[in-house]
Design a protein around this nucleic acid. Structure first.
Lengths: 185, 185, 185, 185
DNA sequence: TATGAATGAGGGTTCATTCAT
DNA sequence: TATGAATGAACCCTCATTCAT
């Protein structure tokens, strides 16, 4: 079906050039369909982006959840969450970047709200894991937001200076931060 | 002089609506000058943004440096760095957001590089403080990048949910993270 | 049969939103058929409009003719023509409006000509009645065109200002105009 | 100034092809300016149309008013109003047609209201003249609307069948109608 | 007889930038 | 030093129509 081709093409293009730099023409070209086809499947650019985020996050949360279940110790669980998030970020860096940060720009209001909701849900998803790991419940979402942003920043830095930084450092710094928050002095 | 009026107007508008949502017309209107005047003082929008960032950061680094000098203990210095950064972020949130994240969009290459350089310099500036505070030198920049991003995320979250979160929590979480990195287990 | 459902749906939609504001999607939706079905029954939008007009007018002229036959006096006949025309206009205002005026827009040439022909025929139909009522034959069509347009304008005005105008005024003004033309000073 | 060139070009194009059939590209081409220039002078197509109508009507009402003042008898005044309106209609037929009828289509709400207001004002302007000539005040606007629509229809018919109809017939029919309304039986 | 996914030409609009004054 | 009219490439979106099933 061309809907999938479009979603995938859009993910590629957004991840490569960002939301605004990617034109509908380019997405159509990349997907190998006519421009009008985009509008047959999605009401507009913003809603396409929204669908892409929603459907992507669903897969991601499912993956993380199932991987965590296999782990025994708390430490392993946290390490898995970190590892999977970093993996995903490094693979879809630009898209993840948009998801975490760039949202507020020129996206249509309704779709923007939907994406924000998606983001809140993901933050809550991470927060729940942190709470289970021992963080005070009322601080969970904030800590999760901080964790994800930090990851975002570390990965960005890593991608632009991969010669100076090793991948392990990212995981280690994140792990240190998280455990610091878990058992505050 | 018009130049200052423009810089200030641009800072206000960018901070209010973001880089792309702010048009040159709006900046001219806000500054109370004609559109052409913008191009008399700056080669283009990107360069105006760059000037704004450069000049703003100069003031900021100076402020932080002088405030730190007054502190005695290491702990006080770190707390000051955190406090000042959070203060600035909360005041110029959107602008800070752009500075830390949104850079990759549709900004002209050359100016983009210049802004990235500024950002690297600021990260290095924070890194130097962290190194002085005990972090291994080769990890300074990455840790600083992580710290700034985390602050970014925490403040964003705080701004959108100020009823659920207290300002103190931000500082505390940041402090915990930083110290965790300073003395890894 | 689908064809009828489509014609009726189209009449409703055109009457509600006008020819151009009504999309083929909307007609299909209103008719409860798939979009492709429209093109199974009609070569295109314009031809659908044309069919709608042709078939509608046939019913209308038959109605008027049979109603007139029952009347005895000239005065009654004229009053009946006026009353029926106004009734129809007020019921299918937008459609009637299109029929009388809006034809010249973006309708395909051939269908446009067909609709114009229908309109001429209807004008001639009214003209014949007027001639029978005493108007000079060479002036019949022009007078009929004037009569129909006037009705059009009066009804439009009435529909937009129904609180200021009474339905009877329309009929009265039309009657006065017609009789003035019948027996010029 | 190019604003005038644009208004004139738009009047020509709208008058030739109607509002919807005329694209902004065509107007720009006809005016000899770049497309963007249209948007420098007008917020959009609808507002351009609105400006065109407003400014045109101003000239027209002024012309009619000054010409009427020279006439002595009531009869002359009415004849003048008829003559000038018909003249104008025949010169800018399509534009006048749009002004009187096509308004309701795909024009932006706000501009649409403005044009409707303009039309109401013009109807009132004609109504005032009719009232002065003896028509009951509460019937003035309706009669004026009827008069203008009739003129519209007669002129349209004349333009499409100029070989069958003489210009004088239009004026005569209109005069007969008006006087019939002035002194109802 | 009916479907609906796919098309692509065409339309209105935005906006950073230029330049004569 | 400053202006603002003019530009035009780029963009998002609409919609009548086609066609394989």
């Amino acid at each position: 079906m061309s809907r999938n081709k479009i979603i995938e093409a859009a993910a590629r293009m957004f991840s490569r050039s960002g939301y605004h730099r990617t034109s509908m023409d380019e997405i159509a070209l990349e997907a190998g369909v006519a421009k009008g086809t985009l509008y047959y499947h999605f009401p507009g650019k913003a809603q396409m982006f929204q669908a892409l985020i929603t459907e992507g996050l669903q897969k991601i949360t499912e993956t993380i959840r199932s991987e965590i279940d296999r782990d025994r110790s708390l430490r392993e669980q946290i390490e898995t969450v970190i590892r999977l998030n970093v993996d995903l970020y490094l693979e879809y860096s630009e898209l993840a970047h948009i998801f975490f940060n760039e949202i507020s720009n020129g996206i249509e209001e309704e779709a923007l709200l939907a994406v924000r909701k998606e983001r809140s849900a993901y933050i809550q998803f991470i927060a729940d894991i942190l709470v289970e790991a021992g963080i005070p419940p009322e601080e969970g979402p904030l800590a999760a937001a901080g964790f994800l942003s930090m990851m975002n920043g570390l990965c960005s830095y890593y991608l632009s200076r991969s010669n100076e930084v090793k991948r392990e450092q990212i995981d280690r710094l994140l792990y240190a931060s998280v455990t610091a928050v878990l058992s505050p002095t």
